[in-house]
């Protein structure tokens, strides 16, 4: 257990220091204006206290220059807050480094299930190497959860029916709180765990140690065959469905004439609702049946990992 009363959280990611700097700016502005108001109120209230019941103070209507000043100056300050906050927000949510290592997260009432690409699984624990960008691809099996690591100043809701992705780069080894921040039912406050940031070598040893089992790609491939996906989606393109080799991350032309990128969300939607986006050249309605209810979010993530590996092989050839 920690000693004493912490007043400020640990900062352990590349983003944490940047968010703290912005926070200090906000605190400075807030303290300045709060002091301005408190001091003015106190001074006026004392200096102009009622001295006689017959006081008749002057009638002051107002002052347009003052009104302009106390509208425009705060406006300028809040626009700085906006621009600064927006810049960091964009970096945090949208600018995922291309070389980020992927980790898959599934939230369910009331635990975090985490799987690394090599197949290593953990529950309510996340082990990551220090100094490397990590990208989390997150899904929920049931209600909305929110993945929150205060030491990284990072949070993202995990909404059922879609993928949430975030990235971070830890800067300090140690153990940090992992919380579910979106109320998710009875066990909400127990849906928490730890993020362990390790030296890269130590991390590699951890990753390959213990029971690893099959990698996510291998599990995905097994599932792909087990569910019979391979009977139609043949690698050589002679099946009744399109070949999925080299498809991930590429644009796909649809029957409707639109083009979409075959990302995680597209694959997931096509498994659960095959009629939503049919590939050009294939019949509508599709002959593929839905896998809604037959595959877990974890299973879908494994198939996605497998399809990603098919694209990587394609690229390396």
């Amino acid at each position: 257990m920690e000693q004493g009363v912490p007043l400020f959280p640990e900062a352990a990611s590349t983003m944490a220091g940047k968010v703290d700097a912005l926070y200090f700016f906000l605190v400075a502005v807030a303290v300045f204006f709060a002091a301005l108001i408190f001091i003015s109120l106190t001074v006026f209230a004392l200096k102009y206290r009622r001295r006689s019941e017959t006081d008749v103070p002057p009638s002051i209507h107002g002052s347009t220059p003052l009104e302009i000043a106390w509208s425009v100056i705060p406006l300028g300050l809040v626009m700085i807050m906006f621009a600064w906050g927006a810049k960091l927000y964009f970096d945090e949510y949208n600018e995922v480094p291309a070389d980020a290592e992927e980790v898959y997260v599934v939230g369910k009432q009331w635990m975090w299930h985490i799987q690394h690409t090599n197949g290593k699984r953990e529950i309510n624990e996340l082990h990551v190497p220090v100094g490397r960008p990590i990208k989390l691809i997150m899904a929920s099996e049931d209600v909305i959860h929110s993945f929150y690591i205060p030491a990284f100043r990072l949070k993202k809701d995990v909404v059922p029916g879609r993928y949430a992705t975030i990235w971070f780069q830890a800067t300090k080894t140690g153990r940090y709180h992992l919380f579910c921040a979106e109320y998710c039912g009875t066990g909400h406050s127990k849906m928490k765990g730890w993020v362990t940031v390790m030296e890269p070598a130590e991390y590699q040893a951890w990753l390959s140690g213990g029971v690893v089992g099959e990698s996510m790609e291998a599990a995905g491939e097994r599932l792909f065959n087990q569910l019979g996906c391979n009977t139609c989606h043949r690698a050589d393109g002679t099946g009744r469905g399109p070949s999925l080799v080299g498809v991930f991350g590429k644009p796909v032309r649809l029957l409707s004439g639109e083009t979409v990128i075959a990302d995680e969300a597209y694959i997931r939607e096509s498994i659960l609702n095959p009629n939503a986006k049919i590939v050009a050249g294939y019949p509508s309605p599709t002959i593929m049946s839905t896998y809604q209810g037959q595959i877990s979010e974890r299973g879908i993530l494994q198939i996605i990992a497998y399809l990603k590996s098919l694209s990587k092989e394609e690229r390396s050839q």
Partner: peptide, 9 residues
């Protein structure tokens, strides 16, 4: 809370 990056935290 209106500032995006601090609201994330």
């Amino acid at each position: 809370l209106a500032t995006l990056a601090t609201d994330v935290h």
